[in-house]
């Protein structure tokens, strides 16, 4: 009797440390954020007690919040979408046999291996109208005679930020797809060629279906990373001009640490949490359904 109880308890004992860690690092902060989102918090950071849903009411009334939500959607879709398409194309190219393939593969990893802050700072200096290398190069080449302001509006800033997001995300997609491509047996293509299949036919009937698992993993992980991404936007614009280039992550930080509204920041966090939960839920339902189909 005693032995079986011990045996039953053993696995739980082994996973106890990770459970404690997860509770401490994930569950407690999540509960704290929910509490904060319903509390009045002074600018200095003192919690003054519950104020019902006043923080939520304030953010739902704010035009900046809705604009930020829209930006977050655009940012996630554009960055994940385009980086997946471009990463896929680059992976297809890198899967061909050519001289210097290893060297090119190494170069593709560079943007991924560098920290996001460094990447973003470098891009900030590339597009700067005064000291930016883009203007300097164009001037030296004689293409322009005066400095060009590459960021004349909030939309232009945001477009650049999306491009930087895409640029740093491509390597991840490329390598996920590349590993998938390498696992596809050449005999499929050979058989298809004998049957007279062209490039598109092979792509849609062999490559894409067999790449589905790697593409799903890279897309889901990217959605989570990109949705929560902070460094690029914070380094380039801090959400400005006029709070028009925020995504939820930078908006939360600004509300809390610049505007002194920690309660509202927590409320925005809760909204972000709910959105990600819905995304994760959809993903789980889809992957469970896929598993069931496979079992059939």
């Amino acid at each position: 009797m005693k032995k079986t109880t011990l045996k039953k308890a053993e696995p739980y004992v082994w996973i106890l440390p990770s459970i404690i860690l997860m509770v401490g690092m994930i569950v407690v902060p999540v509960i704290t954020v929910f509490q904060m989102s319903m509390s009045e918090i002074s600018r200095a950071g003192v919690i003054k007690g519950y104020n019902n849903f006043e923080n939520f009411r304030a953010i739902f009334k704010s035009a900046t919040f809705w604009h930020t939500l829209q930006n977050t959607f655009v940012w996630t879709v554009v960055v994940v979408g385009l980086s997946t398409v471009l990463g896929f194309i680059i992976a297809m190219v890198l899967n061909q046999k050519f001289h210097g393939r290893k060297f090119v593969r190494a170069i593709v990893v560079f943007p991924w291996a560098t920290s996001l802050i460094i990447q973003a700072t470098i891009w900030k200096y590339i597009i700067d109208s005064q000291f930016g290398s883009l203007n300097v190069i164009l001037k030296k080449l004689g293409i322009i005679s005066q400095n060009i302001n590459w960021t004349p509006s909030a939309a232009a800033y945001f477009a650049w930020e999306c491009w930087i997001g895409i640029f740093v995300t491509i390597p991840f997609v490329t390598f996920c797809v590349l590993s998938g491509l390498q696992s596809i047996d050449d005999t499929y293509y050979e058989a298809a060629e004998i049957d007279g299949a062209g490039f598109w036919k092979k792509l849609t009937s062999i490559t894409l279906p067999l790449l589905r698992p790697s593409l799903t993993v890279s897309t889901v992980l990217n959605i989570i990373y990109v949705f929560n991404s902070f460094p690029i936007i914070w380094t380039i614009t801090k959400g400005d001009p006029a709070d028009k280039t925020h995504t939820l992550a930078t908006y939360i930080y600004k509300l809390s640490f610049f505007n002194g509204k920690a309660g509202q920041a927590a409320a925005v966090s809760v909204v972000g949490f709910v959105i990600l939960c819905i995304c994760a839920g959809i993903y789980m339902v889809l992957s469970l359904r896929a598993e069931k189909e496979e079992d059939k």
Binding site: I41, S42, R43, A44, G45, V46, I47, S256, F257, G260
Partner: peptide
């Protein structure tokens, strides 16, 4: 400063550019 105050770890002496919020609290 904000993090220190909200976690009850305010310093003894602070060099800053505002003080009125602290008085209010």
């Amino acid at each position: 400063v904000n993090t220190r105050i909200s976690t009850g770890q305010q310093p003894d002496i602070l060099n800053f550019n505002a003080f009125a919020d602290f008085v209010a609290d």
